[in-house]
Amino acid sequence: MNTAIRVLIAKPGLDGHDRGAKVIARALRDAGMEVIYTGLRQTPEMIAEAALQEDVSIVGLSILSGAHMALVPRIRQVMDENNLNDVPLLIGGIIPDEDIPALKEMGVAAVFGPGTSTEEIVSSIHGLLATQE
């Protein structure tokens, strides 16, 4: 066996700042993961398609636009329609605390706001995948 954790990092919606996403991508790479980075302005369909083709274990979304309450349920829905129910969603970006319970309700496994250390994200991914097995 010669395995590696594969993660999709995607930026849905219209905000054009992907510095955060790139920092996360690098941190995950440095933690030995294979990170598929899709670039800006991805539609929910594009994200689900990439997650399916790349057979990733985790999808991480970076959302800074404030549109998370509209984007996340749609992405989860399209992923589920593509039989990706078992692939957890993580969110990072500018997410108000009061939205977090609702996002978790929608099936988001974890939410990371500003100031989260990259170690925290890495260990959260390891934890999520461990519980899945």
């Binding site: 590696a4 991508a25 690098r26 995950l28 790479r29 440095d30 933690a31 030995g32 993961m33 294979e34 990170v35 598929i36 980075y37 899709t38 670039g39 991805q42 539609t43 369909e45 594009m46 398609e49 990439a50 790349e54």
Partner: peptide, 18 residues
């Protein structure tokens, strides 16, 4: 060094989605 990788070719292949 880390065994990880950043795979970014899809960025330029977005027109092929769907």
């Amino acid at each position: 060094f880390t065994g990880g990788a950043i795979l970014g070719d899809r960025i330029r292949m977005r027109d092929l989605a769907g």
